[in-house]
């Protein structure tokens, strides 16, 4: 395919993916916004006012970046895993397989769709958070790049889950048993400095911790960890997951008989 054709093909997948979640926005956009708003009200406002400061910030202000990141992670992942698995399950994937689309465009198209959903929800949640707190934007460059890369990372992870999934159960196992615990333990609600030394070290193997911290740094200017290391980890994961996804699709895993 020529470059122009590839652009058209990528755009086609992207638009299709965006339309998919936009058409069912009541299921895809509204629920996460409601959930995160409840977190704002309960943890931020009600309980948070009893907690006092965290790392020199109001508890509410401290958790808002983490909650936004949580929404972005969950939704980027959920969008791709359900869309890709559905495409595979109902054999719509065949429309792509019979076309000259290279596999990397299929990957990029689905990932772009996941990023679109993640960021849409992220922006909506950020909007809601304005009612509860005055957000400052310490470093917009870091803020935007982290959320974008994280969204891409989890869209890729969702894609892999979709490639491996053999049943609808398989697309909820990873989010429930891996993603949610890692997010909750990823420093959304607390600073790891509060943990005993041993648990601090255990926490450091959780990649989500780095994303949440860097994102929070973008807002507040404080981080428990090195920003450079965070970028290295995020980009490293993206490269590994991307190559893995391409490898699997090329081998026909889960998509060809």
């Amino acid at each position: 395919m020529t470059l122009g054709e590839k652009y058209v093909a990528l755009k086609t997948i992207f638009i299709k993916e965006v339309l998919r979640f936009a058409r069912i926005w009541v299921q895809t956009i509204v629920p996460p916004v409601i959930t995160i708003s409840l977190y704002f009200i309960i943890f931020g406002n009600l309980i948070g006012s009893q907690i006092g400061d965290m790392e020199g910030f109001r508890y509410m202000d401290y958790i808002v970046p983490g909650l936004i990141m949580m929404a972005v992670i969950t939704n980027s992942y959920a969008n791709v895993v359900s869309s890709f698995y559905g495409t595979k399950f109902h054999h719509h994937i065949e429309e792509m397989l019979v076309s000259p689309l290279p596999y990397y465009l299929i990957v990029l198209g689905f990932v772009a769709g996941g990023i679109a959903r993640g960021l849409t929800v992220g922006i909506a949640v950020t909007g809601v958070s304005m009612f509860f707190t005055d957000l400052s934007f310490h470093n917009p460059g870091i803020l935007i790049s982290t959320v974008f890369l994280t969204s891409a990372l989890f869209a890729l992870a969702g894609l892999l889950n979709g490639i491996f999934a053999k049943s609808f159960d398989d697309i909820s196992i990873i989010p429930t048993f891996v993603l949610t615990p890692l997010t909750y333990l990823g420093g959304v609600f607390y600073s790891i400095h509060m943990l005993p030394g041993f648990w601090q070290n255990v926490s450091r193997v959780n990649p989500i911790l780095y994303m949440v911290n860097t994102f929070r740094y973008g807002f507040l200017g404080v981080s428990d960890l090195s920003i450079g290391l965070s970028y290295a980890i995020i980009i490293g994961f993206i490269l590994v997951l991307y190559s893995w996804a391409i490898y699997l699709l090329r081998s026909g895993y889960g998509i060809r008989r």
Partner: peptide
């Protein structure tokens, strides 16, 4: 139809 054409790189 338009999407299928899109996968083949045919402009909209």
């Amino acid at each position: 139809l338009v999407n299928q054409a899109g996968y083949f790189g045919i402009d909209r």
